[in-house]
């Protein structure tokens, strides 16, 4: 039983890691698009196409259940392009859905972080002749990272638990395995073990986050 649960746990862990690896960087362009001022004027109304697209994307991702997004992404290739679904499709759809869903949440966190950096930081950098890229990577980003860490921590912990949603599309992660074991063994123990594993995992996440926060604690502003 433990072996099966750990196998499920490995799947959850993979989903967790792939989501972070995909969503953390993907959130950056979304946040930058959301903030972009590029656009044109129609009469007195300013139209910012990139910002609008990003807003719409974020709104849909946050406004609909992740479970439905998984199904949408799972079935879209078949209904839209007539591509045949394979056993691998469920897993792929699940990973893609998690990444684009979490990227939307991360983008909003990045945006609030970037907006909290005082104008004076950009102005000081500009007067000193830093390029836009240098200003972003050397001056703004490190300060943003420190400021958004608590909010990101919340999302990461939520993500650990959200991996159990993959069960709904039929990915054999830990929760699905536990549910199957509960049914076959007529015992609640698999659920208890699964709960303990989720909690231990999050405990580790908390420790790691605490370490990072401590490392960035050498200054405050």
């Amino acid at each position: 039983m433990m072996g099966m649960l750990l196998e499920g746990f490995a799947v959850s862990l993979q989903l967790f890691a792939l989501t972070l690896v995909g969503a953390i960087p993907l959130g950056v362009p979304v946040a930058l698009m959301r903030q972009s001022t590029w656009g044109f004027s129609v009469g007195r109304v300013r139209v910012r196409p990139l910002a609008l697209i990003a807003r719409f994307y974020i709104s849909v991702m946050r406004g609909t259940p992740l479970m439905l997004q998984m199904f949408a992404i799972y079935f879209a290739p078949y209904y839209v392009f007539g591509i045949k679904l394979t056993p691998e499709s469920k897993w792929q759809a699940c990973v893609v859905a998690f990444i684009i869903n979490y990227a939307a949440y991360f983008a909003e966190i990045y945006r609030s972080g970037m907006q909290s950096i005082p104008r004076g930081q950009y102005e000081a950098a500009e007067v000193l002749g830093y390029s836009r890229a240098q200003t972003f990577f050397k001056i703004v980003l490190p300060q943003v990272v420190k400021r958004i860490l608590p909010a990101m921590g919340n999302e990461v912990i939520t993500l650990v638990k959200d991996t159990s949603l993959a069960f709904s599309i039929g990915v054999a992660e830990m929760f699905s395995t536990a549910k199957a074991l509960v049914a076959s063994q007529v015992s609640m123990v698999p659920f208890a073990i699964a709960a303990a594993l989720y909690w231990v995992f999050n405990f580790v996440v908390e420790i790691v986050l605490g370490r990072v926060e401590k490392r960035l604690d050498y200054y405050h502003d």
Partner: peptide
């Protein structure tokens, strides 16, 4: 490159 500016509220890079 020809000028420097000192702000009222310093605007040092805190990190």
């Amino acid at each position: 490159q020809r000028f420097g500016l000192v702000f009222q509220n310093y605007n040092l890079f805190p990190h």
